[in-house]
Design a protein around this nucleic acid. Structure first.
Length: 253
DNA sequence: ATGGCGGCTGAGAGCCGA
């Protein structure tokens, strides 16, 4: 089971890159963020792929998320939803094989920081509810928080910067604790202090790997114990964010 | 400390990102 996430920063501008990447990586589930287009205007063939169930949850110009589920995983169209706390089309979820997968784009917070905190708090409650119900969850996406100091390159560390603030980091830890979730990227690569997924688009920050880790695959403990890898692909695409792909052994085996 | 630029809309200059 291969689950991938990518903030594409405009699906129309990134269409060919996403198609190429999906053809090469062949993920079973794909979570996209910042599609920046109304669901009805998603370009084909990405909008309705032969071998994936596609769920687009977007709006004009801004934000928006999507989910793709390989049809072989689920003969009938999976049940898709956007949880009640959604805001600006920032979360979509799908239930497949007893696992809930969510594609999430947390508000940056520069425009409305309290709204970011409210969204993160609602994510905590959502994950806690699924945890209490015994539903396995994989929460993927651009969480717009660098989890800890080591998730920001030393030269980008700014304690007062949005994305690095103590209250955001505390909410990140609450999300993991209340949801019974594991940060799969960190768990798979515990000693790596260069594990970045976003780079500022100037001064060759990406090539020099001076970045932030903002994109995550969080998985319920039982599922995370089945993870075999979680990799960032900094060379893929021209979004400010790189895709992240986690591979899991089947839960049942 | 600051920084630059692409994607989007609407058909300009401005918002947004983190």
């Amino acid at each position: 089971m291969r689950i991938a996430t990518w903030n594409v920063n405009g699906i129309r501008a990134r269409q060919a890159q996403v198609e190429e990447w999906m053809a090469r990586e062949r993920p079973d589930v794909v979570c996209l963020q910042e599609i920046k287009v109304p669901s009805a205007q998603v370009p084909l063939p990405l909008g309705a792929m032969d071998d994936y169930w596609c769920y687009w949850h977007g709006e004009r110009a801004y934000s928006g998320v999507a989910l793709h589920v390989r049809k072989a995983l689920s003969l009938q169209r999976p049940v898709c939803s956007h949880p009640g706390f959604d805001h600006e089309n920032r979360i979509a979820a799908v239930e497949v094989g007893g696992v809930t997968v969510a594609s999430v784009y947390v508000p940056n917070g520069g425009k409305d920081f309290p709204a970011k905190l409210r969204f993160l708090e609602a994510m905590v409650d959502y994950a806690a509810g699924l945890h209490a119900a015994g539903t396995a969850l994989v929460m993927c996406g651009d969480l717009n928080v660098a989890r800890s100091e080591r998730d920001v390159h030393p030269r980008e560390r700014k304690p007062a910067a949005i994305g690095q603030l103590p209250e955001e980091r505390a909410l990140f830890e609450r999300l993991l604790a209340a949801g019974g979730l594991v940060d799969v990227g960190r768990a798979q690569d515990p000693a790596n202090d260069q594990l970045f997924t976003w780079w500022a688009p100037w001064r060759n920050m990406r090539q020099r790997n001076i970045g932030w880790r903002l994109d995550y695959v969080l998985a319920s403990e039982a599922l995370a114990a089945r993870a075999v890898s979680c990799t960032v692909s900094p060379e893929v695409g021209t979004s400010d964010h790189a895709p992240v792909l986690a591979e899991f052994q089947p839960l049942s085996s």
